[in-house]
Simulated assay, not measured.
Amino acid sequence: MPSIGLGVFQTPPHETRTAVEAALATGYRHVDTAAAYGNEREVGDALRAAGMARDEVFIETKIWISDYGYNQTLHGFEKSAAKLGVDRIDLLILHQALPSAFEKTLQAYRALESLLDQGKVRAIGVSNFMVDHLTALLEKATVVPAVNQIELHPYFQQRAVQTFGAEHGILTQAWSPIGGITFYRNGSHGSTLEDPVIGGIARAHGKSPAQVMLRWHLQRGRSVIPKSTKPHRIAENFDVFDFDLTGSELAAIDALDTDQRGGPEPTEITLESFGREIPEA
């Protein structure tokens, strides 16, 4: 899996195709989408328009909680694959744990294991799983999740989840890797892009704050899926392979953690509050 992918969370369908096309032209070979984003079809359109061989681009998508349960998740795969226009998905993950109905989560993961066994997916994983969710899953699973995609940026680092993942061979993948808009909704923090520590490091390297944060993730061994619809930002986010942060610079960014989550609290995800129908292909 390429270490940097283009994320398309909250990208409107009509903007998704051009964003993915711009990313592929820049050099990205990894796209992250989800059934709940409502733009899988447009991701597939962009991939076909690019004219690349199927194996050239790593496609990652997610099953939404409304499609949890063994048979429902198998059908969720079929819906996503049809919208993407592919026979095989490179990485298929569960979008959230369902703490109040964890048996459905386990059934959904068992379906992912079946899809992996059948060769319909190349790898399986989870998203927004906390340590207790991962612990309960590993007690039943036959395949360790390849990836746990979580909110992770300098102001919210989820170190316990990262450590647990590393101990069990689960790669941490960061969504909102430069501190997305959800983090600032209560107005109690400024933007990571304006953080003086990050800004100073950026000036020292002749890079942007966003590039510094993405480089921090990569040097800490994480995968990242920055989101943008602007071609120049998409290109900027990919231009992070020609410099290295020092140990002291990495430590300075590590020290910015506030332990304050910006996205939904994973322990509070329920079908009643977050369930939505995922349309057929």
Rank of each mutant, 00 (worst) to 15 (best):
M1F: 13
I4C: 04
G7D: 11
G7A: 06
F9G: 03
T11E: 04
P12A: 13
H14E: 15
R17D: 04
T18H: 14
A25G: 07
A25M: 08
G27Q: 11
R29K: 06
H30V: 02
Y37C: 07
V43S: 12
D45W: 15
L47G: 02
L47I: 15
A49P: 03
M52L: 15
R54P: 05
E60T: 12
K62C: 06
I65G: 00
I65E: 07
D67W: 06
G69P: 04
G69D: 06
G69I: 05
Y70A: 06
N71E: 15
G76D: 09
A81H: 10
K83V: 08
G85N: 12
G85M: 11
V86N: 03
D90N: 12
L92A: 08
H95A: 09
A97F: 03
L98Q: 00
K104F: 01
R110E: 15
Q118V: 01
I124E: 03
V126M: 08
M130D: 13
M130T: 13
H133A: 13
L138Q: 13
K140N: 14
K140P: 10
T142P: 06
V143Y: 12
V144T: 07
V147S: 01
Q149A: 02
I150R: 01
H153G: 05
F156P: 01
Q158L: 03
V161K: 10
T163I: 11
G165Y: 09
A166D: 15
E167F: 00
I170L: 10
Q173A: 09
A174D: 00
A174N: 06
A174Q: 01
I178E: 07
G180L: 06
I181A: 15
T182V: 14
F183W: 07
F183G: 00
R185Q: 15
G187A: 04
S191W: 06
T192S: 13
E194Q: 12
D195N: 14
I198L: 06
I198K: 00
A202C: 05
H205N: 07
P209Y: 08
V212P: 01
M213C: 11
M213H: 04
L214S: 05
H217A: 00
H217K: 02
R222T: 09
S223Y: 10
S223G: 10
P226I: 06
S228N: 11
T229I: 14
K230G: 00
P231Y: 04
I234L: 09
I234F: 04
D239G: 01
D242S: 15
T246R: 14
T246Q: 12
S248C: 12
L250M: 13
L250H: 08
L250W: 08
A255H: 13
A255E: 15
D257A: 07
D257N: 15
D259P: 02
Q260P: 03
R261I: 05
P264Q: 11
E265T: 14
I269P: 00
S273Y: 10
E277K: 07
E277H: 09
